[in-house]
Design a binder for these strands. Sequence first.
DNA 1: AACATACTTTTTTCAGTGAAGCAAGTTATA
DNA 2: TATAACTTGCTTCACTGAAAAAAGTATGTT
Lengths: 361, 361
Amino acid sequence: MRLRIGNKDLIKDINRSLVINEIRLNGPISRTDISKNLNLGLSTVTNIVEELKTQKLIFEIGEADSTGGRKPILLEFNYNYGYTIGIKIEENNLIFALTNLNADIIRRKKVPFKRGSNSNDVLELIIKNIEDLIKAIPMDRSLLGIGIAISGLIDQKRGRLIYSGMLNWSDIDISGILKDRFNVPVYVDNDVNAYTLAELWYGQGRTLSNFIVVTYGSGIGSGIVINKRLYCGDFGGAGEIGHMVLVADGRKCECGQKGCLEAYASENFIIDYIKENIQFFKESKINIDEELSIEKVYEYAKNGDMLAINALKLSAKYLGYGLLSVINIFNPSTIILAGEGMVAKDIILPVVIDIVKNNFF
Amino acid sequence: MRLRIGNKDLIKDINRSLVINEIRLNGPISRTDISKNLNLGLSTVTNIVEELKTQKLIFEIGEADSTGGRKPILLEFNYNYGYTIGIKIEENNLIFALTNLNADIIRRKKVPFKRGSNSNDVLELIIKNIEDLIKAIPMDRSLLGIGIAISGLIDQKRGRLIYSGMLNWSDIDISGILKDRFNVPVYVDNDVNAYTLAELWYGQGRTLSNFIVVTYGSGIGSGIVINKRLYCGDFGGAGEIGHMVLVADGRKCECGQKGCLEAYASENFIIDYIKENIQFFKESKINIDEELSIEKVYEYAKNGDMLAINALKLSAKYLGYGLLSVINIFNPSTIILAGEGMVAKDIILPVVIDIVKNNFF
DNA sequence: AACATACTTTTTTCAGTGAAGCAAGTTATA
DNA sequence: TATAACTTGCTTCACTGAAAAAAGTATGTT
């Protein structure tokens, strides 16, 4: 990143940003209060507000009660100034959401596609659906940007998909293709990071400087926020805590390594563990001959099946050790646990919390 | 951190910083080149340079060869503008260094104190020696700041020592005491972070945005640099990679946890391993009855003793697994390995590199 | 070799610009 | 009449850009 030099444009940009954010986050608010909160001159605020009003980025929403003088005029951010489209690419589904700037969903759409489709066909499908969604935007407003979440390794800076095992795609310039077509900024990131940004901007992370989001489900991933910014590493692949070594020389992991956290705390491990140990649980109702899905395991556990419960608890134990490492490394005030695996949180959380509490250095 | 509003002071501060840093890092340099490199107006550079010259922060060092026109006047940063004192508190030694702003050491001093001394006595000793060092500063120059490195848990923001096991001190307002006495900024951090900052400012890290320093010795620690800033975590304790769980339910660690990296990759492990396994190495020359120090182990290893070599290699193997986890989490372009353990790098490095290369996801 | 002319490059000067800041004034209310 | 909210007009100051000044080099002529 090149450092910006100080000049009048910089001042302008800074103060406009400050005023917009003050109104967006603390609005409705009066000019006087903005001035006090930001320590900006009152006349400066007046001028900036005037400009933002003509740009329709903000508007006067009405007046508040007087406290002994002229009533303050309340300003509010125009959340419908523009719209954005968010897309999640799943294994055989596209999920679209058209939102305003408050992330209110205006329209939502789920579009299936054939598992294993090639990237060109799916991108074609994405373009068609974006065109369709754009029609729902009011005439005098416009699309401001597109965000895409894909499970895989992403070059965030260039908006390229480097590799996705789930889709079996590699090296696709998603941002370039869509930017050419729609002429708006296009952001691409993996699903965990996208979820982490959501927590940072709209969720529990709003008030935090540093936190880690850990997703627990088919695999284990994490999003890292440091100094209020998502950290992606030098090659875009930070946060792969699923492939931390938890058991030196341990179980083989899909990635090729041995003893990864993900080889112990994941859906696959739970199912494998049940298969390996069903012989020791004569009273278990689990039928090993039918295809065993993770949902069925949850079902069995809910009904008190000890094998299912043990498998979940063991997986949770390893998850706890993984979190312990994360805590020792990042020393964050908060860790957010999420992911499909959390549907069994009644069983998992007590185990995890117990391990973390009793072992933290 | 409160955001600064945009005004003329901000512009001034930014551009003065940019010019100073340009001269400091790329000097000697002419006004014209500064203007080109920073994209700042030539007249602006002239004005700022004039100001910095009267402040004696920079000076004109001479002229460079002409390239067909007027000779450029070269500007250089005045590294002797002021001085700083750096102090490392060891188990029974204080190490002082008086340096100029180029980190050139003007004077260095080693002052022993009684192991187990209380903090007041040692701080008294520190103050006396600082007073002594200040006498070595030229009359017209001054002390600009003090930096202190201690092994332990530090509250960097307040400059307080929270707890040091090595010294058996806790909750000491080091910064407050010295700031009151000398009226200059005082920075306190643990030894690993201090070393990491040295790498960031003067070492291999100068050109890197993200890197991790891993110290391997009596324990394992790490310093984390993200976006050119040292990351300390919300409670000042980030980087404790020594207490990552490497072997679930493994060896007991000094910290109370089980299976920490430090329980496997550390001097203590190496010595314990030798004691536990000497029975299997009949040909080993190691005499288990004498007090076994890590230095002696290195000596034995250098002379080809297989037990010593095996112990070092095994410890290195675990270190490799630890680094693998660090790489998976941070995805940095560079890891810097340092610490006393590296004196045996001929044995350790090949093992570590092999593990990392063959396993990286 | 001495000199004149043309061109280059570096640095300085100075009027102009614009964003913030300040103070006095206006509006609206208790 | 006092007070709070907001507006207007003027001042300030750091950057900008163009022109001028300073200090060279390159080349051709006598």
